[in-house]
Design a protein around this nucleic acid. Structure first.
Lengths: 215, 215
DNA sequence: TCACGTATGCTCGTAGGCGAGTATCCGGAA
DNA sequence: TTCCGGATACTCGCCTACGAGCATACGTGA
């Protein structure tokens, strides 16, 4: 099977998205994206931006429409989206929107390794996470409200989604913590004992053995 | 600031996690991970595995403890985790668990580009997504239950988390669809009109202009 | 007017990610 | 007994990601 997307980077999606508005040169796209807060987490990676733009051009999704030189500044090449690019954009959004896909999440990875920490430490960290999340939600809600004054809701859907997911995460963590407290989590004692005495509880024993070498 | 982690790949975390169980050679780690379904989504990338193992060794988190050659097969180098590796693992899990971090999600990206599609198509795709998610949850719940028979809950926490997040996503999508239907989404008409007549509605107009070139 | 911080723009080198290829062994069907 | 498919176990090389560097312009305070 040929690779699904010729340019599969999410940054490429953002580039196509900005070029739909109007032609721009790369640096301008970056400012544009930054302004929309599309980069709160990701401080724009210059190297990637230019690579991605090049690749998009190579595959005919965008094209250079001229290069201005203002004063002695480096030359600015302006790019415009092509018809093929518009189609790719639509098709891509269609796919991303309609098809749920598992993505490797850091928190999920951490949870699967939670046994690497003593239980009481893990519990402390989960509490901390919940508190940080709560604070972040509060901050983001406020920011959302203020942006909402001047921007139609349509352009803020992603934010609504993020907030919803975070709220769910908090709820889930609280549920887990409650289970730890209420004894709905029988292995907790064995886990704790392991870190206090170094004894591997029997219910964990055979798991590590699975797939053991059959010398 | 020095790079936060010398080996920052999540695959590296998994490697450390398996080597805590017992020493193994790379191929064995892969089988081990596959068996645990740690790769439902990610079919194990061979190239990365060996690169990551090398890097972990370079930084002293793991060390080669011997190499067996069985028959004429390629040499198998067995690796064991070092004390430094154990420490790194703990520290890493501590960080991932206690600190929420924004991660770029495909669905979020898609939502922010939802205007690239005609509204009715977008709505259809959201419905489709919800249905696919529902089906996946059902399947995963069943798988969870059956695994649960033989495995302590502790080793399935990540799955519980994933399920919780998916459920939240469904709820959120349903909420959004309801808003589309009930008129709680005033821009919908302008959006639809744009795709029918090509007219950009006034409330969207000035947004595209922002940061426009000041020639 | 000159120096200095900040914004404008891009280039390049390196390290990491990953698929496709390679080579051997083993078990069972023909 | 021979052949073949699948498991075992890695290697190689390309392509992408990205940070750090470079070079000019502009504004502003002393």
């Amino acid at each position: 099977m040929a690779k699904r997307r010729k340019v599969g980077n999410l940054l490429a999606l953002a580039v196509l998205g900005t070029l739909v508005q109007r032609p721009m040169h790369p640096y301008e796209m970056a400012s544009f994206l930054r302004e929309r807060g599309k980069d709160d987490d990701m401080p724009i990676k210059w190297g990637s931006l230019y690579t991605v733009v090049q690749n998009l051009e190579k595959h005919g999704f965008i094209e250079a429409t001229g290069s201005t030189r203002a004063g002695g500044r480096p030359e600015r090449t302006t790019y415009a989206i092509t018809d093929g690019g518009r189609e790719e954009l639509q098709d891509w959004v269609r796919e991303l929107l309609g098809t749920p896909e598992r993505e490797p999440l850091k928190f999920t990875a951490a949870l699967s390794m939670i046994g690497a920490l003593p239980p009481d430490e893990a519990i402390g960290l989960l509490r901390q996470r919940r508190d940080l999340l709560t604070a972040r939600i509060a901050a983001d809600e406020q920011q959302y409200e203020s942006t909402r004054q001047s921007v139609p809701r349509m352009f803020l859907i992603e934010q609504e989604y993020e907030l919803a997911v975070w709220r769910a995460e908090i709820q889930w963590i609280d549920g887990l913590l409650a289970d730890f407290g209420s004894g709905a989590f029988p292995e907790l004692d064995g886990w704790r004992a392991f870190y206090q005495t170094g004894t591997v509880p029997p219910e964990f024993r055979d798991l590590a053995e699975r797939g053991a070498p059959a010398e």
